[in-house]
Amino acid sequence: MSATGSDAIREPALVRYSAIAVAIAFLGLSVVVPLASVLVQAFGQGAGRFLAALREPETWAAIRLTLLTAAISVPLNTAFGVAAAWLIARYDFRGKGVLTTLIDLPFSISPVIAGLIFVLLFGRQGLFGPLLEAHDVQIIFAVPGIVLATTFVTLPFVAREVLPLMQSQGSNEEEAALTLGASGWQVFFRVTLPKIRFGLVTGVILCNARAMGEFGAVSVVSGHVRGLTNTMPLQVEILYNEYNLVGAFSVASLLTLLAMVTLVAKKLLERSKAVRR
């Protein structure tokens, strides 16, 4: 091992090794052990049990609903995130600070409260409850509620990744493109999009991971109707509470795989971003 910095400001080897050992032990206990336990529990009784668990119709329905939810929420938030980042990075206007705070808000709200606000809005006793009931539209305890809650929770992800990038890059290249005769959309697709692509993809990946993994908010609005309004994380909870550990951990291991793929992709993107610079 080695340390950065010159010899004069390097800690003694014993200190360095101890620090590394403690860091590894801490992360090992708090992160690696739980992670490993998911995989062991899922595959411990053989891949056959794992695959059978995933083939249960209710689990299969949960997987489909999760994919559907992400397929709606992620593109919406991507479009929103890019538009919001462009707006905040490129223009000065009054109310910008408030707008930025509002966009970040879903990050600082408990997922449970995120679910609650949609129940208060569209639930039977909610603000629009009577109206929705009169037209026989169900949002809460149904798929639209799950999509809404998921979109709310993941709203800031893309904007958060793209905004700092746009701010640090400035708009010189966009201005140059305009003087060369490019139209607004040409500027966006030929100059801006290539400039932000790594950040944008990172944002989309993180947004997707959260959209597929969201539990608290979705739990509140879903109503847990088996085979209909259960997403994968909710299915994990149900199977776990029924002591179907293989089933629960099989679904959980799929979500773990998603998380690991997300992390690896994020790291690779960060590296190519660094190389680019």
Binding site: I24, L27, F215, A259, L263
Partner: peptide
Amino acid sequence: YRFFGRRVLDALVDLPFALPTAVAGI
């Protein structure tokens, strides 16, 4: 510090961000 496994350690730090809370819970 630069040591064997630093990259893995670095990636593991983000795991709680990426791992669905229900999975972490069980």
